[in-house]
């Protein structure tokens, strides 16, 4: 697989699995022994847990839309810098839904093997999300 092919696989994850909520497509797009380095609480490795992660996101936030801002690929790695926009419609990680909108940034690093997502790391601006949802006070700090 070329780096361009790997980018195409990763784009389908955001465009189709996340934005169009085609969770079953993960059977085609991710390996059975998927390795997650930045799990959600309770998430283990493997395709079933990846599906549960995506289902959790889609269940918590509807609508939720990811915009791919940049894609960088080398070897079997594909990096995606994204922003999202969503509404906290269902509540997340045990916190009741606030009904509020949010928009945050994140950077994902995927490993693609044999045209499938195989491994993942990320950093997401969860603090900004919690602040936008009113779950954490806006620090005087950040504003000044």
């Amino acid at each position: 697989m070329s780096e361009q092919d790997n980018k195409a696989v990763v784009r389908r994850y955001y465009d189709e699995v996340l934005n169009q909520r085609k969770m079953d497509l993960l059977d085609e797009l991710a390996v059975e022994d998927y390795v997650e380095h930045d799990p959600f609480p309770g998430q283990g490795n493997g395709l079933a847990d990846l599906k549960a992660r995506v289902a959790g996101l889609c269940g918590a936030f509807n609508p939720l839309h990811f915009t791919i801002e940049d894609v960088i690929a080398e070897g079997d790695k594909v990096v995606v810098r994204w922003t999202n926009a969503g509404t906290d419609s269902g509540g997340f990680m045990g916190i009741p839904a606030t009904g509020k909108e949010f928009g945050i940034a994140g950077i994902d690093i995927h490993v693609v093997r044999g045209a499938k997502l195989a491994e993942h790391w990320h950093v997401v601006d969860q603090l900004a999300q919690m602040q936008q949802l009113g779950l954490i006070p806006q620090p005087e700090a950040a504003g000044d």
């Binding site: 990096v79 810098r81 940034a105 950077i107 690093i109 969860q126 603090l127 954490i136």
Partner: peptide, 27 residues
């Protein structure tokens, strides 16, 4: 603290920067 930085390097020098850091984890 964890982070991922993206840099543009132009003629051997860092010229542009984006990042996301885990401020939640820090807090």
């Amino acid at each position: 603290m964890r982070g991922i930085d993206i840099y543009r390097v132009t003629a051997g020098k860092m010229s542009e920067h984006w990042n996301v850091v885990d401020m939640f984890g820090l807090y």
